[in-house]
Simulated assay, not measured.
Amino acid sequence: MSTKFLVVAIVALSAFSTQTAVAQKTDLAAIKCSDFLKMNESNAVNVVTWLQGYYTYEDDPTVVDSDKAKSKEAQIKEYCADHGDTDLVSASAIFMDKKYNAVATTSLANPRQ
């Protein structure tokens, strides 16, 4: 089972577990950092869980780590506090995408490349 499927399934199940089910579509690419900072805790956790699945690669473990999600949420919120106009998907890449981090680390180690 792919990690993305597992994360999507968990998010979907959590959406159905609420007492009042409301059909809702959210374009996460349209969410700005300032919008993310205004979200209630439940919605923020759901978005971070989705982002974890979005930035999961085939070779990543198929584990949903709620402690890691909380840590990533805090990192993203700290970044977003200073970058309100940045879209959330781009902002979260800094903390969640291991390929982004590999490029950033290489660039910092070799600034003339």
Rank of each mutant, 00 (worst) to 15 (best):
A23Q: 09
A81W: 03
N46S: 15
K70E: 11
T3H: 09
D59H: 12
T62V: 14
N110Y: 13
V48I: 15
N46D: 09
T18R: 10
A12S: 10
D82F: 09
N43Y: 06
H83V: 01
E78N: 14
E41P: 00
I31P: 00
A109R: 08
R112W: 11
K68H: 07
V47G: 02
V45D: 09
Q24T: 14
A109W: 00
N101C: 03
N110G: 02
V22R: 08
A23E: 08
F5Y: 12
V63C: 04
Y57Q: 10
K25F: 10
Y55R: 03
S92N: 07
K38Q: 13
S2R: 11
Q52R: 03
G84F: 03
Y57S: 05
F36M: 02
A44R: 07
S107R: 11
N40H: 05
S66G: 05
A102S: 12
S71W: 01
T20C: 06
Y79R: 01
P111E: 05
T18C: 06
Q75K: 14
K77A: 14
V63K: 15
Y79W: 14
L6W: 00
V11L: 08
S90R: 11
E58S: 13
K70Q: 13
V45M: 11
T20K: 13
A102I: 07
I76K: 00
T18E: 11
D82G: 13
K72T: 11
Y100Q: 09
V89E: 06
D97A: 03
E73Q: 15
D67T: 11
V7H: 11
L13K: 00
D35E: 12
S42V: 05
T105P: 01
E78K: 15
C80Q: 09
S92I: 03
M39D: 06
V11H: 01
S90N: 12
T105K: 15
K25N: 11
L37G: 01
Y79F: 15
L37F: 00
C80I: 10
A69R: 01
A15Q: 10
G84V: 04
S14F: 08
M96G: 04
L28P: 01
V8S: 09
A74H: 10
Y55L: 03
M39Q: 11
A30F: 01
E73N: 15
L37W: 00
S17T: 08
Y54K: 12
T106S: 10
I94Q: 09
K72Q: 13
A29C: 05
M39S: 06
K4H: 04
M39V: 03
F95C: 06
G84E: 07
A74M: 11
K99Q: 11
A109S: 10
A102D: 13
A9C: 05
D67Y: 10
